[in-house]
Design a protein around this nucleic acid. Sequence first.
DNA 1: CCAAAAGTGTTAAGCATACACCCATGA
DNA 2: TCATGGGTGTATGCTTAACACTTTTGG
Lengths: 245, 245
Amino acid sequence: MQKSEEIVAEEALDGSRFMPGLSVDCVIFGYHERELKILVSKFKNTSYYSLPGGFIKRNEDADEAAHRVLFERTGLRDIYLNQFYTFGNTHRANPEPMKSVMLANGIEFNGNHWMLQRFISIGYYALVNYTRAEPKPDFFSESCLWYDIDDVPKLMQDHRLIVKKALETLRNNVNRKFIGVNLLQDQFTMGDIQKLHETILGEKLNRTGFHRKMLNSGLLKRIGKKKTGGSHRAPYLYVFHSDEE
Amino acid sequence: MQKSEEIVAEEALDGSRFMPGLSVDCVIFGYHERELKILVSKFKNTSYYSLPGGFIKRNEDADEAAHRVLFERTGLRDIYLNQFYTFGNTHRANPEPMKSVMLANGIEFNGNHWMLQRFISIGYYALVNYTRAEPKPDFFSESCLWYDIDDVPKLMQDHRLIVKKALETLRNNVNRKFIGVNLLQDQFTMGDIQKLHETILGEKLNRTGFHRKMLNSGLLKRIGKKKTGGSHRAPYLYVFHSDEE
DNA sequence: CCAAAAGTGTTAAGCATACACCCATGA
DNA sequence: TCATGGGTGTATGCTTAACACTTTTGG
């Protein structure tokens, strides 16, 4: 499964393998120590940061491409993935950053190089288990790291807008679908879920109301009590009801 | 502003003007006589029906392309338009229908013709005033007509799925945004709005509850009474509050 | 006067919010 | 015994739903 760097580079740079002018960008959310985080790549030998992304192979579904990017960056499969918007403005096409990246990495090109053309990008957001993900930079990047959603470095092109729109979608969905199952460990307390929701929404929630709403949803199942070591009553532990029976 | 058919055909068939492998498809909703309708095109000399769609010019925003398609099909500008999903599966690419269309219309092509390649399509839905729209077929089509949403002919490729997803999105939005302003006349009764919502949602709504909810929204303004000619009390007429003052 | 549609009042149910109180635990 | 976080009971207010009743109009 190991490929030499040359082969990786050759494949990555071979535009004929991909749908031209089309890319996927992934906003990969993780949650750790009460902070909502996303994965951000840094291009080698430059100061450009970007969202993990990739191109769509000629014989590959757009969703598959996003899943592939996710697997390559995190080592995880079967990830919660949601297409939320397609970014198709002309002014998002700015070849200068990519030129710098290619120059800085000794990639030969002319002005018509396929990677310098206008791209329309399909935005996906993913929810992953922070502790299971193993971020790995791609061939063009020197790092792929978690950043607090409130402390993301300046991103290339319109990637800040993409993050903003992803977060908006996530916030709209947090009340409807059950987000926690993707971002928390298998077992969690009611406090864990509430803190997660508060972090995502950026606001405090009523404790008792939240507690009851979650219980009434019928999605949770108590499996015992947790010894927190804290000087207070031990909270119940829950799993998602669908996990069992 | 009139162009000869030859020039229109030449431009429409010149793939170099467009983003390759990318299209927009529009689900154009109208409302008339208690029926929700969409515009459907029929290709010349074939029995293929499709959604109004088009390609994205190299120097054109995706949204602009959708607005252009809308204007060309309806003669309307400043239309409510909403991007709702991008369809990027490989198996949606089936060149056979398009081959038939080109054959039936005397368009020369080889197997590599750009219109026969795989396309990824950005889906938009639009809400237009039925009485103001003037549906016009494009160069490839012999008709562009309104069809009841429950009585749409068999559509090409995955266009049925696109309609389904557009309708789902519209149904999700009907309670949040105020859809009526785009689909009704300037003046309308409470019954008009309720019937519109019932048609979109496909279910009966509580009359008094709906009435009050609408009034409480603060979006409506009474402007007088309507003589319906019916043997019953004359209903109030409303306009959208933002229209005045 | 009657049927039909429209407008409005009243009541009940459901839900989230707010507050209160008790429980369990470690220091 | 005290502070802290967790679980649950009770009261309040808001929104929606359901029903009833009145109003207006043409036949």
